[in-house]
C-alpha cells in the first residue's frame, strides 16, 4: 500500500489540472500568496504612511491604484491587506476544521449517545444565523484580529463535523478497520491513524470553501466597523473606507473589491476542482 502513495496523488493532480478553471484559481491563489509574502519587495511605500496633502489621488505611475482618504498608497495597502485577509481565512478555517474533524470523528466512531449529544450540538449551532452569533461575540469583546479568526472558526465547524461523521460511518465497517481492531489497536489509534487520513478529502474541499467564506465574513464585519482595526489594512476595511467615495474615487473600492471577488472565486473553483478530482465516479 505504502509505495502506492505517490501514484494516487499524481492521478489526483492530473485530474485536477484538466479543469482549467480550477487550475486558474490555484494559480491566482499561489500568486496572491507569494505577493503578500513579498509585499515589502513589490512596493516602495509602507502601508501606513499618511500624506495629508495627497488624499484620494487617482491611479498614476507613482500610485498604481491611486491613494486613499489619508493619502496612503492603495496598491501597497491591498498587497499588505492580502496578508491579513488570507491569515483570517486560514486561521479561522484551521480552527473550524480541527473542531469539526474531532467532533465528527468521535460522533461517528462511538455512535450511541456520544453521537446523539454531539449531533444535537451540531443541530443547535446550525439553527443560529451564524453571522448574528459572530456579531454578538465580537462586538462585546475587544476587537482584535485574533478574536475575529477564533470566533469565525468557532461558528463554522458544523459542516465539517457532519462530513467527517458521514465518512467515518462508511469507513467504520470496512475490512482494514476491523483488522486493526482485531490486532488490538486502541480506539484513539484507530481514529487518528486509520480513519482520519481516509476522511480528510471531503474536509479539504470544505476547508477550501471555508477560507473564502471567512474572507467574506471579515469584509462584512469591516463594513459594520468591527472588523480588522486600523491602521492594519485588510481588504474588508479598505473596501469599507472606499464605500463613501464610490462615485468619484472608484479606485479605492474597486481594487480591494476585485481582490476579494477574485480570491473568493478562486478558492471556490479550486474547492470544486478538488471535489471533482477526488470523485471516484469520474475515474
Amino acid at each position: 500500500m505504502r509505495d502506492n502513495v505517490s501514484s494516487p496523488v499524481r492521478e489526483f493532480w492530473e485530474r485536477f489540472t484538466t479543469n482549467r478553471f480550477a487550475t486558474a484559481g490555484l494559480v491566482v491563489i499561489v500568486v496572491l500568496f507569494l505577493l503578500s509574502l513579498a509585499a515589502a519587495l513589490v512596493t516602495p511605500y509602507s502601508p501606513d504612511t499618511i500624506d495629508a496633502w495627497h488624499v484620494l489621488l487617482p491611479p498614476s505611475a507613482s500610485h498604481w491604484f491611486g491613494t486613499d482618504e489619508l493619502g496612503r498608497d492603495v496598491f501597497t495597502r491591498v498587497v499588505y491587506g492580502a496578508r491579513v485577509s488570507l491569515k483570517v481565512g486560514f486561521v479561522a478555517v484551521g480552527i473550524a476544521v480541527v473542531i469539526g474533524t474531532v467532533i465528527g470523528l468521535f460522533a461517528g466512531f462511538y455512535g450511541g449517545w456520544v453521537d446523539s449529544v454531539l449531533m444535537r450540538l451540531v443541530d443547535i449551532m446550525l439553527c443560529f444565523p451564524t453571522f448574528f452569533l459572530i456579531l454578538a461575540v465580537i462586538a462585546m469583546l475587544e476587537p482584535s484580529i485574533w478574536y475575529i479568526m477564533v470566533i469565525i472558526g468557532l461558528t463554522g465547524w458544523m459542516g465539517v463535523a457532519r462530513l467527517v461523521r458521514a465518512e467515518v460511518l462508511s469507513l467504520k465497517s470496512r475490512d482494514f478497520i476491523l483488522a486493526a481492531r482485531v490486532l488490538g489497536a486502541s480506539d484513539l489509534r484507530i481514529i487518528f491513524r486509520h480513519i482520519l487520513p481516509n476522511a480528510l478529502s471531503p474536509v479539504l474541499v470544505s476547508a477550501t470553501l471555508g477560507v473564502a467564506g471567512a474572507i467574506l465574513t471579515e469584509s462584512a464585519l469591516s463594513f459594520l466597523g468591527i472588523g480588522v482595526q486600523p491602521p492594519t489594512p485588510s481588504w474588508g476595511n479598505i473596501l469599507t473606507s472606499g464605500k463613501d467615495y464610490i462615485e468619484f474615487a472608484w479606485w479605492l473600492s474597486l481594487f480591494p473589491g476585485v481582490a476579494i471577488l477574485v480570491t473568493v472565486l478562486s478558492y471556490n473553483l479550486v474547492g470544486e476542482g478538488i471535489r471533482d478530482a477526488l470523485d471516484p465516479r469520474r475515474q
Binding site: 478553471f21 473564502a212 467574506l216 469584509s219 462584512a220 463594513f223 474588508g236 473596501l239 469599507t240 464605500k243 473600492s253 473589491g257 476579494i260 471577488l261 477574485v262 480570491t263 473568493v264 472565486l265 471556490n268 473553483l269
Partner: peptide
Amino acid sequence: VFVFVGFAVPTFW
C-alpha cells in the same frame, strides 16, 4: 463562474 461570482462579491459593495 456566474454563481460563484454572486457568492464571492462582498454584498455591501
